[in-house]
């Protein structure tokens, strides 16, 4: 039975993958309709999976609150917050001026911004470690980074008129060439993986190897 289920899953993935390739090259009404229907199904499946995910999060944290005293308060805060937001949304709506929107704007958004703002400190500490001239290559990296950083602030322009053009050259020539080489490899890797899914060789999407 599991073998039959695997074959069915691989067949559906292969047929859908091949259809997606074909519909990209044709302009027929039928393929456009099927494509749109498949996209709708994806949205429906994602919405259903989100409900399952939220239930799983609540169950997971409930069991943690009971069995792991050291993490109890974190789990309780999460459960209370999730239930409170749901209650606010369902009871009073999520429109303009609602309590739900107030809680989102004044609690959730600032918390997300706080985590985002940590990036500034992390960039500084990562740059401190990354820009050490331990070898010839890292010395070149340090010199290139120094030129680009200096040229991007008013001080660089006041020191030398060529700073900006040197920085532009570093970003647009050697850095872009390296980036494009990586992008070519990544693109080919992605296409090869997609073809392996269509051919039924790649099965990791269903937990198989």
């Amino acid at each position: 039975m599991p073998a039959l289920r695997d074959r069915l899953t691989v067949s559906v993935a292969a047929a859908t993958g091949a259809f997606m390739v074909v519909q990209y090259f044709v302009n027929a009404a039928w393929s456009d309709g099927v494509y749109r229907t498949l996209l709708d199904w994806m949205q429906i499946i994602f919405a259903a999976s989100l409900v399952v995910g939220v239930i799983s999060v609540l169950r997971n944290h409930l069991s943690r609150a009971i069995s792991k005293p050291q993490e109890r308060w974190y789990s309780l805060i999460l459960i209370v917050s999730a239930l409170a937001m749901s209650l606010l949304g369902f009871a009073f709506g999520a429109g303009r001026g609602s309590s739900f929107l107030w809680a989102f704007d004044h609690l959730q958004a600032p918390m997300q911004s706080t985590v985002f703002s940590l990036l500034a400190f992390y960039i500084a500490s990562a740059a401190f470690r990354g820009f050490r001239a331990r070898s010839g290559e890292s010395a070149i990296l340090l010199a290139a980074a120094f030129i680009v950083l200096v040229a991007r602030v008013p001080l660089g322009e006041s020191l030398s008129g060529h700073a900006s053009s040197a920085a532009d050259w570093i970003v647009n020539v050697p850095a872009l060439a390296a980036k494009r080489a990586m992008l070519i490899g990544i693109g080919l890797g992605m296409v090869a993986t997609a073809l392996k899914v269509i051919a039924g060789v790649e099965r990791t999407y269903m937990g198989r190897r």
Partner: peptide, 8 residues
């Protein structure tokens, strides 16, 4: 992503 978690 709940789907990724489930596949994992």
């Amino acid at each position: 992503d709940p789907v990724v978690a489930s596949v994992a």
